[in-house]
């Protein structure tokens, strides 16, 4: 589904990704772990089409086609979803209007019938019940005045509504207490399965207790320095990142 080949990217003059290669197949859950500044969020941003980075080398194929030429909205319509580390507050725009516009843009692009207000609301309420969210949130302005946990749940709710093929969760656990973490992870788990691929980007292992990955990769200084299964995450939990970083420095 997703194939990243020798990806190099920089922000301004500073190189951040220095040759990342990764393959994600349909139905798989991958975790990308790494210390601060390792390039995790850059990778997530590049996949979703954030314009702050310049790709200098390498390519990204999504369902066999080059992803990097597509605009962010085209990627969304092709089935890519990024759950933001810092969801944006948009005062003056209701969650309902925002999501209905987004959903219908995507449905239009897929040649599906657009939903009218009633259809949209019943669909939204069903998903909210599923995620145990307060239905009142749908009429509130997007993320405005939401707690950290509400914002992250709102991201997962958007994901449930937009039904992506590839979901990238960028530090979805950051700023969450354990109860909120459990709820958010539970939401993600309900969306697991079938052909949907999920890439979980995280600094900490604890999220992976709840969203158990099929594969774990460690990103350090712009490269993937180790890959393995969920045991790798536990090893990182015990030993920290430094041994891998040292190994990488020795190699370089």
């Amino acid at each position: 589904m997703l194939e990243i080949k020798d990806l190099h990217a920089r922000a301004g003059e500073a190189p951040i990704l220095k040759g990342v290669s990764l393959r994600v197949n349909a139905g798989e859950v991958h975790a990308i772990m790494g210390p601060n500044g390792s390039g995790k969020s850059t990778l997530a941003g590049i996949l979703a089409g954030r314009a702050d980075y310049e790709v200098t080398q390498g390519e990204v194929l999504y369902e066999g086609k080059s992803l990097l030429d597509l605009s962010p909205e085209e990627r969304a319509r092709e089935g890519i979803f990024l759950a933001f580390q810092y969801p944006i507050e948009i005062p003056g725009v209701s969650n309902a209007y925002f999501l209905k516009t987004a959903l219908n843009s995507i449905r239009r692009a897929r040649g599906e019938k657009e939903l009218d207000a009633m259809e949209f609301l019943s669909h939204a309420k069903e998903k909210m019940r599923f995620l145990e969210m307060d239905e009142a949130l749908i009429q509130r302005p997007v993320n405005e005045g939401f707690s950290g946990g509400e914002k992250k749940r709102n991201e997962i709710f958007q994901m449930a509504m937009l039904d992506p093929k590839l979901a990238i969760l960028d530090e979805t656990d950051s700023g969450l207490d354990i109860d909120a973490l459990r709820i958010v992870a539970g939401g993600v788990n309900t969306l697991r399965g079938g052909n949907r691929a999920i890439v979980v980007v995280t600094h900490y292992q604890r999220l992976l207790n709840y969203i158990v990955p099929d594969f774990v990769h460690v990103l350090a200084k712009g490269r993937i320095v180790a890959s393995g299964d969920k045991k790798l995450a536990l090893e990182l939990e015990q030993r920290g990142y430094s041994w891998l970083e040292e190994k990488e420095s020795a190699r370089a």
Binding site: P72, E73, R75, L82, F98, L99
Partner: peptide, 13 residues
């Protein structure tokens, strides 16, 4: 950032 947020959800620029 907000423009990108909306676009990442499929909304035209």
């Amino acid at each position: 950032n907000a423009v990108f947020y909306l676009r990442s959800r499929g909304i035209e620029e």
